[in-house]
């Protein structure tokens, strides 16, 4: 079997989605596409339980004042990665909004929440409760990325 799946990565502006995955994906398109057409696509191959899976990762432009995420790009996704900034808990709110909109467009698909910049200790007064079961990831150290992909793939196979 040759399994290919489309997954989308969503998050607020400047949470570090792109740099997070850069090392772990096959890349051939310029960063420009994210700001111009709102999406850039990379590829991640992995083996899960003996099955070779190809993940086409659609890195969607972060939500900000100038551009909202195009829900059209979500079409056909088998899984979603939500990325929030571990040093800015307010980015969780944006993730929540994005998740609601995504579910509206797609229905319920397997998803994963990533708490990025885990290598930076958050400010002591920061409210980290919202992160809950989010997987800690770090673009700097590379921590958590590979397992994030594997976990999402697992959830997609199961779901």
């Amino acid at each position: 079997m040759v399994i290919k799946k489309k997954i989308c990565m969503l998050g607020a502006y400047a949470v570090g989605k792109t740099s997070l995955v850069r090392r772990f994906v096959e890349d051939r398109f310029s960063e420009r596409y994210v700001t111009t057409i709102g999406v850039k696509i990379t590829k991640r191959e992995l083996v899960l339980d003996g099955t070779h899976i190809t993940l086409m990762l659609w890195d969607l432009h972060g939500d900000d004042a100038f551009q909202t995420v195009q829900m059209a790009y979500l079409r056909g996704s088998s899984g979603l990665l939500f990325v929030a900034d571990g040093t800015r808990p307010e980015t969780l709110d944006q993730v929540a909004v994005l998740k609601t909109r995504a579910v509206e467009s797609l229905g319920a698909v397997p998803s994963l929440l990533l708490r990025n910049k885990s290598d930076i200790t958050p400010a002591t007064d920061a409210d980290m409760s919202g992160f809950g079961e989010a997987l800690p990831t770090s673009a700097k150290s590379g921590e958590g990325v590979e397992s994030a992909f594997a976990e999402l793939a697992r959830r997609m196979q199961a779901g």
């Binding site: 290919k4 489309k6 096959e26 051939r28 398109f29 596409y33 057409i37 709102g38 999406v39 696509i41 990379t42 590829k43 190809t54 086409m56 659609w58 195009q70 059209a72 790009y73 079409r75």
Partner: peptide, 16 residues
Amino acid sequence: ADPEMVSAMLTALGDF
């Protein structure tokens, strides 16, 4: 050159 990524980007272009 990597037909898989080309296909995905083409689709994204169409959506765009």
